[in-house]
Each structure stands twice: as structure tokens, then as C-alpha cells.
Design a protein around this nucleic acid. Structure first.
Length: 274
DNA sequence: CTAAGGACCTGTCGGC
DNA sequence: TGCCGACAGGTCCTTA
């Protein structure tokens, strides 16, 4: 479910409700997510207030005076703010109940998500080696030129590599490559400066628009405020295998790349010559 | 160092 | 209708 726009949408939805709120208690119903939820969160958090809700890559960071709570939504996670009592459902694994009657609830059927605690030295090990944020100036043409040196990896896998740039998952990687008219299999050492430049702009543009639309709702994604995202109707290639290209009407093709499906237009996105 | 593949887990969908 | 395999938004970890 969540790529960067969905995580950012979630951050914006929950922040106004929980920033400066004081933790009343933490409820863990299923501690085994991708990693075990730290067992002593109640001792750490009760009485503390959330100083800030931020985001790094697809990690949500809740800053407290004594450390940082890190939440990742994995593949199927969502976080919601509940303003009134709400029945607990099957995959509601984790709640933070605040003194202002707000509950922050993590739901995650596949349990690839994570809740981690980091204190002392920041950032957390998992955040330490991440590449630049795509929507900042830290991500530029140079990012790609430097990162592509001596590599022949397929461009789709390259832009999904978190050490190169963060936040580009399977949906937006496919969309950005279509926008930049680059075939997903193109080895990165064969991409021109101009094409890389177009790809940088495409990634920034598409992620930006997706955030404006409140993310992409597939299945049941809802932002922190419970509203769905509206980017799905703007997808050009993702999930459109067999349908016709919006630019040239040719039938969109699907290939598998690193065990992920990749839909593209073989006409608009030229196959690499070899 | 790079690259490839498995692993984690549940739900849903298509085919037989 | 039931069963089985394939696949789904992520990414760490192991192996070569």
C-alpha cells in the first residue's frame, strides 16, 4: 500500500492530532511485526508528549524528549487517528492512546510493518544509509550520475534502490519511467545525461502530484484522516497491463523484474539496444 | 563492492 | 463450491 506519497499523506493526517499530545498508554495486541515491537514502550512513553511527527523515506518518526518512535507501514500497513471509541478489528496490532482522547492505531494484515524505538545516537541503523529524499535538492541529476557509475543494473531496480534515492516504490517507479520514456530494463550505464535528467524531474513531479492527491488508493488505503487518495485515477501504466497506452494507444506490456511486475509501453519506452 | 534471490505474512483472485 | 498457486504497495538479509 504505502509508497512515499501515502506515508507523507499519513504524516500530514496524523500530525495535527498527536503533536503535543501526551501518551496515556500503549497497547500492543500483536508484537510480532517485521520485528518485535519493543516490550517496554509503556515505561518509555507514558506521560511523554509527541514533540514532532516527521518522515524519512517511508519511515514515520515520532519524536519524544527521550527518543524516537519509528513506524514503518510495510506493504499493507495503515495508521489512523481515531477520535472516538472504535471496535478493534483483526489486524489492529498497535495503539497509542493519548490524554486528549485521540488514539493512533496501526493496522497491518501482512505484518511487514515495524514499530521501533531509538534513543541516544540518531539516526537509527535502518535510516543511516538511506539515499536522498526525492523531493529535496539533495536529489538531483548528480545523484543518478554518481550512483550509476560502474553499474549495469536495470534502471527500474536502480531507482527503487533506497541507497540511490528513497521513496520510489513499484508504482511510482513504473510511472516515472513511463513519463521519462525510458524502458525499465535499460542498464543504467547506457542512459544519457538528458534521459537521467528527465527521470529526476519525472520522479519529483509524480511524487509531488501524488502527495497533492492524497496518495494512491489501491484496495483500502486511507490517509491518517480516513480519506482515500485520488492518484489511482491518474496512473498511466501501473496496473494497466493489456490496456492501451494513453499516449500512443498501443497495448501496455508487462515484464517481471526482480520479482516485481513492471508495466510499460514498448512503443513509448524504447527497449535498450544491445 | 554489486547483484540475485529468499524471507517475512495474510488476503484475494483466477483457473481447474 | 472448493482447493491451489500466484500475486500484492517493502526491504532486510544471506549468498555468490
Amino acid at each position: 500500500m504505502p509508497e512515499l506519497p501515502e506515508v507523507e499523506t499519513t504524516r500530514r493526517g496524523i500530525a495535527p492530532h498527536i503533536e503535543n499530545a501526551v501518551v496515556l498508554k500503549v497497547i500492543v495486541r500483536q508484537p510480532q511485526l517485521r520485528w518485535l515491537i519493543p516490550p517496554h514502550l509503556n515505561q518509555l512513553l507514558i506521560g511523554q508528549s509527541v514533540l514532532k511527527v516527521s518522515r524519512r523515506s517511508k519511515y514515520l518518526l515520532l519524536k519524544f524528549v527521550n527518543g524516537e518512535l519509528i513506524i514503518h507501514l510495510g506493504m499493507s500497513g495503515s495508521l489512523r487517528v481515531l477520535l472516538s471509541p472504535n471496535p478493534v478489528e483483526k489486524h489492529d496490532h498497535f495503539d497509542i492512546v493519548f490524554a486528549n482522547n485521540v488514539t493512533l492505531r496501526l493496522t497491518d494484515p501482512r505484518r511487514f510493518g515495524a514499530v521501533l524505538w531509538q534513543e541516544g545516537e540518531l539516526p537509527h541503523k535502518l535510516l543511516k544509509n538511506l539515499g536522498p529524499e526525492p523531493l529535496t535538492e539533495d536529489f538531483s541529476l548528480d545523484t543518478f550520475l554518481n550512483g550509476a557509475k560502474n553499474r549495469r543494473i536495470a534502471v527500474k531496480q536502480f531507482i527503487m534502490d533506497n541507497k540511490v534515492v528513497v521513496g520510489v516504490g513499484n508504482i511510482y517507479a513504473s510511472e516515472a519511467l513511463f513519463a521519462a520514456r525510458i524502458h525499465p530494463l535499460t542498464p543504467v550505464n547506457r542512459i544519457s545525461k538528458a534521459k537521467f535528467s528527465a527521470l529526476v524531474e519525472a520522479i519529483k513531479y509524480i511524487l509531488g502530484v501524488a502527495i497533492e492527491r492524497g496518495g494512491t488508493t489501491l484496495k483500502d488505503f486511507v490517509g491518517g484522516d480516513g480519506k482515500p487518495g485520488y492518484f489511482a485515477q491518474e496512473l498511466q501504466v501501473y496496473g494497466r497491463k493489456g490496456q492501451s497506452c494513453n499516449a500512443c494507444q498501443r497495448e501496455l506490456q508487462e515484464i517481471r523484474l526482480g520479482q516485481r511486475s513492471s508495466v510499460f509501453c514498448a512503443n513509448c519506452q524504447r527497449a535498450p539496444r544491445r
